[in-house]
């Protein structure tokens, strides 16, 4: 296997991990408030609007991963060495791993927010903001991945 093909494979792995891990996190994260919200809707379908906000919030990590993967894919043609591939792989890890874990925890906060809305529908924004506190670190992860991806020297 030539250096280039191995480098390419590693780059592809990096893009796959960025989108895959963060996407998994979002899927799990949406699961928590999604289930809780469905229960609340059984009692009061009119709360759908405010509950929807809380449910979709952990979905952003998946998009952060998607954006990072997309940036890597944009550079895939220029990869010629194993080291470049490794660098892309590692650059993908912050957004992937942080996205995975933060989305799950954000989902848990979101599920608690759903309980809040069930009792006090007007306080929904406070629940959303508390859930967004968790997201801060996913944003930072994306940012570092972005800078790392840009920092990889391509020939």
């Amino acid at each position: 296997m030539s250096d280039q093909t191995l480098g390419l494979a590693l780059t592809v792995l990096g893009a796959a991990l960025a989108a895959g891990l963060a996407g998994m996190g979002s899927a799990i994260g949406i699961g928590y408030p999604g289930r809780a919200a469905t229960g609340v809707l059984a009692e009061d379908p009119s709360k759908f609007g405010s509950l929807f906000l809380l449910v979709v919030l952990p979905g952003t990590q998946g998009f952060y991963g998607f954006v990072a993967a997309f940036l890597i894919i944009g550079k895939i043609a220029q990869v010629t060495t194993i080291m470049q591939g490794m660098q892309f792989l590692f650059a993908a890890l912050p957004v992937g791993v942080v996205g995975l874990i933060s989305a799950i925890h954000q989902g848990k906060v979101g599920a608690a927010g759903v309980n809040l809305v069930a009792k006090r529908p007007k306080e929904v924004i406070k629940g959303v903001i508390l859930a967004a506190m968790v997201e801060t670190y996913a944003v930072l992860g994306l940012l570092i991945s972005f800078f790392l991806i840009n920092a990889v020297k391509l020939t």
Binding site: Y64, V67, T136, V139, L143, F146
Partner: peptide, 14 residues
């Protein structure tokens, strides 16, 4: 406040 940049990038990226 760096989140401003990150969120801006997400919009552009998508």
């Amino acid at each position: 406040y760096i989140r401003l940049m990150a969120l801006g990038l997400v919009t552009a990226g998508i």
